[in-house]
Design a protein around this nucleic acid. Sequence first.
DNA 1: AAGGGAGCCTGGCGGC
DNA 2: TGCCGCCAGGCTCCCT
Length: 296
Amino acid sequence: MPELPEVETVRRGLAPTMEGARLTRLELRRENLRFPFTPGMADALAGRQIESLSRRAKYLLIHFEGGLTAIAHLGMSGSFRIEAGGEPATPGEFHHARSKDEKHDHVVFHLARANEPARVIYNDPRRFGFLLLEETARLADNPYLASLGPEPTGNSLSAEVLATAFADKKAPLKAALLDQTVIAGLGNIYVCEALHRSGLSPKRAAGTLVDRKGRPKPQLGLLAECVRDVIAEAIVAGGSSLRDHIQTDGSLGYFQHTFRVYDREGEACPNPGCGRPVERIVQSGRSTFFCAACQK
DNA sequence: AAGGGAGCCTGGCGGC
DNA sequence: TGCCGCCAGGCTCCCT
């Protein structure tokens, strides 16, 4: 999926259309995605105005008037797109216009706005995503949000925070950084990229970056900085948009062109004076790309 | 009890 | 051209 930068890009793309609009109808075209939609969700949200869109880790939060929030997760292959216009004039109209990929249009937000109506459509071929409803006041206790670690943006991610999480950890750095309770929002791509930038091996035990007193070693500070940098740069670039994920406006993000190691097995390490072929290994079932010369 | 692996799904790609 | 196996951005659960 969409990792944090992609979800943030989606949020920014949807906000102008959704914020302030009224949801005239929430159309659920099947009973479930990864799991069933919250029972009664469509009825509960119909007619409500959308106050704002926010994001926590990889979750998109759609805040409605009256204290309800829809929590959307894009799984591996979820994407949103915006279409102008309201409900089709005849029931068959959608079916007529349907192309191959539209069979994976699972949710449609029908929106009434001051100028013109619009539809926001959630498409997800693999259906690893989900959509559920929560009371806004209870968001912090929602099981999906409650245990998340700090965002890798702003100042909340520090070497000290990582030191606490990494102390005595024997798990490899790759796994530790993918753990959403340590840092919220990192995925396979940005973990690989951050580790390459910081010169740390994905195989290294996380605990080796913490000293005996539980203080962060200098390399841990560098790692925190690299994580923040790579995420910030990716957000500026509009996400990576690999394969089936596109931005809400249909254009591709640019960050994928700046990957240093991700999906570059066999290519030369871009570090000045290195050039060693990037290696691909498998860690806990996922591909890891790294340079064995630069990352120790 | 932390860490590794399977499973959830569909589609695209390379190899034969 | 067709079929087959492998791979994919995430997350939870189960097993050791």
